[in-house]
């Protein structure tokens, strides 16, 4: 400790670290600990039975599957959007820039109801999609659409500032050194953006896993087909089954934590690789 302190330029390290830990404990760790404490009142067998019931397992598959897919789609199109917003000038650019944040501000239930109205078989889009055999509302596809909607700003807003810092001169330098267009994108631009893209992916994914309000209206909520894990948790609460609800919540937390940790690790790896190459 003394060794660390000796090298700090600004004072107050101990105080700020202490505050950080206390604050984090109060806001994040204590509520999460409560979930785990409630869970361990179950016997291991009862716990396993609750979290491995076929219906619950089907809901993990849907929630984590669609969340990962939605985050991946958002990475691709969020990058495109961020690119257009940073690199191009077009009329109404500020308006588009502001629109990106709307999914943040909209109450999720409103998003869910509007999306359902849009994609139902008598909706603006649904009436053209249904004859083609594409059902969106009340299917897992609807869940995906809702998750893409709520996750988009996370990717755009994390990539945008990095892209703004990325000098076009670097691309010009690459071009003048004989790199082709794809080579420039692949070897110069993308590696720089990768950490930001990963962060955006992680944020969009984390948000999607816990999302309830917007999904519940469009999902159809059929067990084994379109029932998300948060609904399973709510259902258990409605039956006064607190421990069952916290057991499933604990599984979700651990799974999300492991996935986020992996993404963070991946980010560290890309940073180190970039440093080595640079």
């Amino acid at each position: 400790m003394a060794h660390i302190r000796a090298h700090r330029v600004l004072p107050g390290f101990g105080l700020s670290l202490g505050f950080t830990l206390a604050y984090l404990s109060l806001i994040v760790l204590v509520p999460l600990a409560a979930v785990f404490l409630k869970t361990i009142t179950l016997t291991p067998e009862a716990f396993w039975q609750t979290v491995s019931a076929p219906r619950v397992v089907a809901s993990y598959r849907l929630t984590f599957g669609t969340s990962l897919l939605a985050a991946a789609i958002n990475v691709v199109f969020g990058l495109l959007l961020a690119w257009s917003l940073v690199r191009y000038r077009f009329p109404g650019k500020r308006l588009v820039d502001a629109l990106v944040d709307l999914p943040f501000a909209l109450p999720t239930a409103v998003a869910g109801i509007s999306l359902t109205a849009l994609y139902a078989k008598n909706g603006w889009l649904g009436q053209y999609l249904e004859p083609l055999g594409i059902k969106v509302a009340f299917t897992p596809l609807g869940v995906l659409v809702a998750l893409i909607f709520i996750g988009l700003p996370f990717v755009v807003r994390t990539v945008q500032p990095v892209l703004e810092d990325l000098d076009t001169e670097i691309e010009e330098a690459a071009a003048s050194l004989g790199a082709g267009r794809w080579q420039t994108v692949w070897r110069v631009v993308l590696p720089t953006l990768l950490p930001a893209l990963l962060t955006g992916f992680a944020l969009a994914f984390a948000r999607a896993v816990g999302e309830y309000g917007s999904v519940i209206f469009i999902a159809g909520n059929l067990p084994m087909v379109s029932e998300i894990t948060p609904l399973i948790i709510i259902t258990k609460l409605e039956q006064y089954d607190y421990t069952g609800a916290t057991a499933v919540a604990a599984v979700m937390l651990v799974a999300s934590f492991v996935l986020l940790l992996t993404i963070n690790g991946l980010q560290g790896w890309t940073d180190r690789r970039a440093a080595r190459n640079g």
Binding site: T50, A53, P54, R55, L222, P223, M224, K236, Q239, D241, G244
Partner: peptide, 10 residues
């Protein structure tokens, strides 16, 4: 949980 309704719906 696991009673008749659950069995039917699954």
């Amino acid at each position: 949980d696991g009673a008749i309704y659950d069995q039917i719906i699954v």
